[in-house]
Design a protein around this nucleic acid. Sequence first.
DNA 1: TTAAATTGTTACGTACCATAACAATATGCA
DNA 2: TGCATATTGTTATGGTACGTAACAATTTAA
Lengths: 174, 174
Amino acid sequence: MSAAKKKGKRARRRSAPGKKIAIAASREAAQRAVSEGELSGLIGYALRRAQLRVFDDFYAALSVEGITPARFSTLAIIDGNPGISQTSLAQTLDIARSGVVMLIDTLEQLDLVSREPIEADKRSYALHLTRGGKTALQRIRRQVAIHEARVCARLDEKEKKWLLKMLARVGAAR
Amino acid sequence: MSAAKKKGKRARRRSAPGKKIAIAASREAAQRAVSEGELSGLIGYALRRAQLRVFDDFYAALSVEGITPARFSTLAIIDGNPGISQTSLAQTLDIARSGVVMLIDTLEQLDLVSREPIEADKRSYALHLTRGGKTALQRIRRQVAIHEARVCARLDEKEKKWLLKMLARVGAAR
DNA sequence: TTAAATTGTTACGTACCATAACAATATGCA
DNA sequence: TGCATATTGTTATGGTACGTAACAATTTAA
């Protein structure tokens, strides 16, 4: 069941041991309460911070499975679009084709995805979830749901919906 | 005045030449309209997409100056907290101290920031904007404002405020 | 005074991703 | 039909960002 695991360490930042505010240096200039000033009004800054936190939580919850955000997205897209090609997947994920190769290599090693030859075009593969991939995805989905709830703890249902809508507008291509 | 520039290329993704939908392969399975399915309902996915777009725009607008999002944040924080230490900056940016070293190295080479020795503590430096750094920051701010407007084109003032508020909630530490 | 902590730094490793070039295959068109 | 062109997956290469670990210099605390 857990063919996963590999060498998936990674835990991103969170270097502060315990909220130590560097009081010792406060005699100097402006150390005591560092102001983020104009930055807090910038979408990009707010996005980065939010994404950092969300991804951290995702890693913490799912790296034991060998699953990263990109790998989960890949699984979900293949599940929703069985037989999809690598190029098509690259476009959907908005990454280069070469990146998909590595992604699928890994997922194949984890026995979650298979490349199946397709007679209609001998250059390309049809990507499918393996049987194990399907059951793993179910399990992973439950984890993701819990992660999602944790990350959205400060939002009610309506707010979350709104946030997704606004993010979609900002993220809309072109 | 423009000691900047260096080797700042970089333009991130946007590999699709012109919206080609891979119709040719449509006979097979589900190629025609790839569905993102469950992913569109996930905060992390929406965040990633939005951030990718916003950062792309930022790079496009400011890489000629040698300025990246991280470098701009650094300049803004130093400007708002003159004399700040590298460690304090690291905590504020939420990155490792070693990362700040590189960041400041670069900014120092660009003549935008200076490390000034401090008698009270011979281990640390007080970071300051140089004269050139201050004028550059003004210029950069104007660029950033334009970038910000472009990125938020689909949001009215109220929506943007709301979005920032929600993002702050999601991004709130712990 | 001595042990522990902090600061900036370097070395190192890794994740991620783009670009460019390629061979095999497919398609379009004269 | 035949040939130029495009597409697919792949590899090689390189860059960027960032963390961890170890260190010397210095400061703080006991």
